[in-house]
Design a protein around this nucleic acid. Structure first.
Lengths: 217, 217
DNA sequence: CGGTTAATTGAACGCATTCAACACGAGTGG
DNA sequence: CCACTCGTGTTGAATGCGTTCAATTAACCG
């Protein structure tokens, strides 16, 4: 199996040492090919997951085929932290990737480990924060604002001037509640306004940060 | 102060006995008039809150005046459980209401109380679940589907056939990412299709559950 | 190279928005 | 009791943004 993205050190983005340790010790590392399903909506919530390498997306498929992408997870991030007994979302490998998986029961057996409990709470809170931001992105915003906000959230952590886009246009569209055509048009429009530029399809650079921030506000 | 809604027993909808006890013992009960601010976005996250009576809404005000309602909280529910050091949302009294407030530091002093820690995690997970559902409601759905989904979420818990709508049309609109006009039109349309009926402005009955569920799917 | 998928572009349509007018109810005061 | 106002909700007509469907171009990989 060839990895589309280099293997990163989980600790850089890891929720916490304690939790990572438990995952490493009690879990197994699984490899998933691009578009492979990691868990399905309606499945019982049974495991905790941490991305080791690659990118994972969560999404929900509607009866009539419409798709809503929940979020994207990169190396070091945990996912599958859903409340309720069943998964609301499906998790899939966005590209070939490796995932560390551990049974919840195994983690629960260590309950009382204060540091561990705290780490799980922290991870859940981080997840909550991401959802809050997603709600704000999906609310009453124009396509321009949505796309700008999305690029912003990808770019703000990166120190390098050129940012990788792990996902395709369709995934962006389904994340933002737009069609792929609208996303495409909006991107060319943002380039026309010299706010961002795309040297490649999946790599972009912010040329006018102030303008992008205004849109994303 | 007169209360627009009767005082309810928090325990019926309470997150957990342990947490409610702590809130009762260490917190204070405050009264807020309709539209009063409980905390503001950008404020430091300092307290935990539980609705005793009435209804609370959280919302975020954009620079250009657009409003996004985060959620509505009724008696027994906790709110203000935001990750991060600062509040992303403002909390306001939707109607006259009473709120039990406790300092986070006071709760943290009891850390190690296993039951309490668990209760806080549970409350956070419930909050996460609500956000997930909100994301799904805001995604690629028509106005009909959004409004239907909203009414559905209000109606599904209620055993009585007539459901109270605590919030006005503008709050519904800002929750669903629509305009007040669209919400109003959609409601009359749903009545025209004999799916729901509104004997009063803020009280409705579901006449055709199957049709409503289809829309909300 | 062809063959395939992904992304862009174009034109027509439709749904939600916008701006405006109107209806309704509650509260106030003559 | 009526007239008045204010807040809230509904309805109408025109506009516009994003969608839809279709065609074209670009990237990727054998």
């Amino acid at each position: 199996m060839t990895l589309a993205y280099p293997l990163e050190d989980p600790r850089t983005a890891a929720p916490s040492r304690a939790l990572s340790d438990v995952l490493d010790r009690l879990g197994v590392r699984l490899a998933y090919a691009k578009d492979a399903e990691i868990y399905a909506q309606e499945d019982e919530v049974e495991f905790l997951y941490q991305v080791v390498s690659g990118v994972v997306r969560t999404m929900r498929l509607n009866a009539d085929g419409r798709r809503q992408v929940g979020d994207f997870y990169v190396a070091g991030e945990m996912f599958g932290l859903e409340p309720g007994p069943d998964h609301q979302f499906t998790a899939e490998a966005l590209c070939d990737c490796q995932v560390q998986v551990v049974r919840r029961a195994a983690v629960r057996a260590l309950a009382g480990d204060r540091e561990l409990d705290r780490a799980i709470l922290e991870a859940t809170r981080r997840e909550l924060q991401r959802m809050q931001e997603h709600v704000l992105l999906l609310g009453r915003r124009s396509a321009r604002e949505k796309v700008a906000g999305f690029l912003m959230s990808l770019a703000q952590d990166h120190t390098e001037d050129c940012v990788q886009l792990p996902m395709g246009r369709q995934d962006m569209a389904d994340y933002l509640g737009l069609t792929i055509e609208t996303v495409s048009r909006t991107l060319t429009q943002l380039q026309g306004d010299a706010i961002v530029e795309f040297p490649e399809l999946r790599r972009f650079r912010v040329t006018r940060w102030a303008a992008l921030e205004d849109l994303a506000a």
